[in-house]
Each structure stands twice: as C-alpha cells, then as structure tokens.
C-alpha cells in the first residue's frame, strides 16, 4: 500500500518536471527578446537613438515643467 503511494509521489514529481521542460516558455522568451533587442538597438539606458526626435523636439515652450513643483 505505502509502496503504491510512494510510486504515486514519484510519478507526480516526475510528471511535473517533464511538463516544465517540454513546453516552450513563450512569455519568458518574449521578455528575453525585449531585453536583448533593447540592448542591441540601444532603446533604453538613456541612449535613445535620436532618429524620430525632430518631430517631437519643436514643441515651443516647456509649459508643463513648472507645474511639477512639489507642494510642500
């Protein structure tokens, strides 16, 4: 009887391990891809490639800047 339960435990643990390793971890792969692409294309680390800046840059006045003063 106990032998059977022992076998069951072994089977469940093995099944769990096999399940983990067979399937492709799509979400993890996306995360890894994003990280690598950000590095290769230098999209983050404050080194953004200034290609599409000209369309953003010519905003006349920094109107919103003074609003950020912390209320004490």
């Amino acid at each position: 009887m106990y032998k059977n339960i022992g076998l069951l435990i072994l089977a469940t643990s093995l099944a769990a391990c096999v399940t983990i390793n067979i399937y492709f971890p799509a979400a993890a792969a996306e995360k890894a891809a994003d990280k690598i692409i950000d590095e290769v294309w230098q999209l983050k680390d404050g080194k953004k490639v200034p290609v599409d800046n000209p369309t953003v840059a010519p905003s006349e006045k920094p109107v919103e800047a003074p609003v950020e003063v912390p209320a004490k």
């Binding site: 106990y2 339960i5 435990i9 769990a16 983990i20 390793n21 971890p25 993890a28 995360k31």
Partner: peptide, 29 residues
C-alpha cells in the same frame, strides 16, 4: 500516516510548481 503521505504529495506538488516559476526565465547572459 496516510494523511502525512498525502500532505507530502501536496508539498511536492507545490515545490514542483515553484520550480516551474524558477524555470520561467530564460538564461540569456
């Protein structure tokens, strides 16, 4: 005794689950 074994089964399932979470990251370094 049976209860003990049953709880062991659950414990091992939870452990297996946490392995799954640990394995959820791909090594890229």
């Amino acid at each position: 005794m049976k209860k003990l074994l049953l709880s062991f089964v659950f414990a091992s399932m939870i452990l297996a689950n946490s392995w799954a979470n640990a394995a959820a990251d791909l090594e890229v370094n």
